Every structure is written in C-alpha cells, then in structure tokens.
Amino acid sequence: MGNLVECGKDIYLCKSCAETALRCFSAKPVPAAVQPAMSAPQTPREFAEELDKSVIGQREAKKALSVALWKHAQRLRGNTAVPPAHVLLYGPTGCGKTYLAQCAAKLLDVPFVRVDATTFSETGYKGRDVQEIVFNVLHAAKTRSQAEHAVVFVDEFDKLSAHGGGDRQAYQRGTQHAFLTMLEGGVVTVENKQETAELDVSGLLFIFAGAFPGLDEVISTRLHSGERAIGFGSQPLGKAQENTKNLITQAVSADFMTYGVEPELIGRISVLAPILPLGAPDLVRILTEADGSVAAQYGAFFSQLGIDFTLEPAAAAKLAELAHETSTGARGLRGWLEQLIASQLFDMSESKSIRITVEQLEGGGSRGRKRG
C-alpha cells in the first residue's frame, strides 16, 4: 500500500497529498491585488490633472498628494515593494482637505472612510479605540480586498498635539501611539459587544488632516533661529527667508514635532502637503467651474423638477467675497447659497424660476455676516 492510508472500505488516500492539502488550507491567505479601472491615472502627473478637474487651486498639495496616490496605485496592483506613502494635509479649515481626500479615493476606486481624531483615545481611556477604524473600513468596502486598500481620512489630527496648552495629556500622546501602531501594519483584530473583525491594515492609505493653528509661528521661529533645518525638503536658511509670506509651505517634519506630534508618528508620514487659504477668485471658481460644483449640482437638481436655476456672475462673486471675509472658505459657499435658495423656494411663483442676484445678497448682507 506504500504511502496510501485506508480511510474506509475500498477507500484509500495518499498521505503526502493529504498533508499538502492540509498545509494549503491552514496557510495564511495572500491578499489579492485590486486592479484599478483601466481609465485610472497611470502617472503622478495624470493623478494631478484629474484632481485639477475637481479641486481648484492647492497646486502644491495636489502635486505632493499625486505622488502618494501613484505609489498607492502600485500597491493596489500587487507591488508591495513600494513603501506606504501616508499623507498629512495641513492648513486652514474650509479650504478643501476633506474633498481632496475624497477625490483621491475616487480616483483609486477604493473605499473612503472619514474619522475624527478627537473621538479616539488610548486603550483604557474613555473614548473609541483607534483599532475600531477596522469596523469602519469593513463596513465601507464591498470586498475584503477593497477593504485592505481603503483610504482612511483622519480629520482634526492637530487636536492630538495639545499645542499651546499645558503638559500634553496622557490620552493624547497615547492616541498618537495607537495611530502609530496602525501605520506599522499587520493584522488587527478588534471586537465590541456586537461583532469581531480582523483586517490586515498594511495596505491602508492614511491621510491625516488638521488646521494646525500657530504652525506658522513654529516655522518662523525655526527660520530665524539660525539653526539649520533638518528633514527631507528643507531649504537653506537664506532661501527660506525669502518666502516668509508663504511660511506654511516651508514646514518640515521637525516643525510638527515641535508642535507636539510624536517623532515616531510623523516619521511614518512621508508626504507633507500644505493647504493654502483660498482667495475670492478661487472661491468663485469652486462655486461655478469645478466638476460637481455647488451651482452645477443645484442646476441639475432643479432641471429635473422643471425649475430654471440661474446664479448671476455678480452674485457668485459676492458669495465668494462673503465666504472669504468670514473665513468660512468653500464650506461657507454652500451655506450662503442654500439660504438664498430656501427663501426663493418658499415664495416661488408659478413661473418656476429661481434666480440668485447680487441685490438679494446685498439686501441680506448684514444678516448674513452675523450668521457666518
């Protein structure tokens, strides 16, 4: 009978074949590559060109982010030799950080998960465990392969640094270390009262974001201290001083360490992408020109209802001016426009026409400013 084992009447099984099959079943499965759509960008420049269609301005941020997206696309195709390129978007609120990350996930055709850093805490403290992000990712994905390559957008990341306050509280520092564990990769197992989940987080792309108020002061102090900047992308002191009005674009890893981000964590975030304040001209373009602009969305919505919607150019310029004055950025544009549209919808005549004019804005300008 040799290597055959009798398993029943007239039934024999090869022992070596059975052992090989058993090893196949018990081996850890290799994550399958997720093939991006054929129309997906193939180079960093193509990623930037696609982002240009939806995101107005922010050239420096889009350039840095595009390289990170290209690297993640290589990992999607199974090239795990490419190191992760986690991103930090930093700059004023209302200037497109969340939207930029959403567009990035759409280009990669992977799930997008947005979480608020302030809702998490170190294990043992009151608050959500960082590892619970695994639940969010799995719920957002259609397949496990998609989940293993999702984009995780961590908003309000600057709130974990306690910059400008007293001694850093333990839970803030501990939460940073919890995120560090996620960036280090590996299989994470997490459970709560309702479910248990497991996910290899090595392939996730983390995009951290925060306003980082006061970062310009940190940068200025470094530039004027006479100390040589340390870190990739740093500039000679003399050259850096020539661009003081754009201090935010000159941030290096050391500045975020001074701000209160743990060295180990910022060391694993290889892409620093500055988000600059939006001027009124940029806000006009966001309102009227960008793919999926607010005006275009309302135009398409009202056309289905047989309602003619018009936003006069002068009114668009006034809306941008108000959003700029109140520092509400792109976020404020939708609020102003919805307020005007709601008023006209309530009083809409049988003509079924909505027209936003500059006179309407000027008439309610003082009330609007107070509201903003």
Rank of each mutant, 00 (worst) to 15 (best):
T249C: 15
A295F: 08
V190D: 04
L361T: 00
G231Q: 07
K318Q: 10
G214S: 13
S343M: 09
G363M: 06
R144K: 12
G96C: 02
L183R: 08
R173I: 03
L160I: 07
T118M: 07
R355F: 09
L22M: 10
E325Y: 09
S234R: 02
L205Q: 04
V110Q: 01
S66I: 03
Q146D: 13
F47T: 11
A21P: 05
P29V: 03
A162F: 13
M257T: 15
A273Q: 07
V5E: 14
S253T: 15
F302S: 12
E6D: 03
K9W: 06
S353W: 08
D200T: 00
N3G: 10
H139G: 04
A178T: 04
L205G: 01
G368M: 15
P263Q: 10
A178S: 13
E148P: 11
T175N: 04
T244N: 03
Q35E: 14
Q304G: 15
L108P: 08
A323Y: 02
Q176W: 06
E198Y: 02
A150G: 09
G203T: 03
M182K: 05
D116R: 09
L160P: 11
K97G: 04
S349L: 08
F25H: 11
T80Q: 13
T326C: 05
P31Y: 08
Y171W: 11
I354C: 04
G210C: 11
L65P: 01
G78Y: 03
E148F: 07
R355L: 12
A21Q: 13
L183I: 03
I219C: 14
R144N: 04
S270M: 10
L340S: 06
D255H: 13
L107V: 08
Y12P: 01
S351Y: 08
S161G: 12
S253N: 11
V152A: 11
T43F: 13
E198K: 14
V110H: 03
T310Y: 08
P111F: 04
C103G: 01
I207H: 01
L76D: 10
L88N: 03
G267P: 00
R268D: 00
H177W: 01
L247C: 05
G365M: 10
T310G: 04
G186T: 07
G174N: 02
H163T: 05
A21I: 11
S351C: 08
I207K: 01
T221Y: 06
E156A: 09
F153T: 01
S366M: 07
D129S: 13
A315S: 06
L305Q: 15
G364D: 06
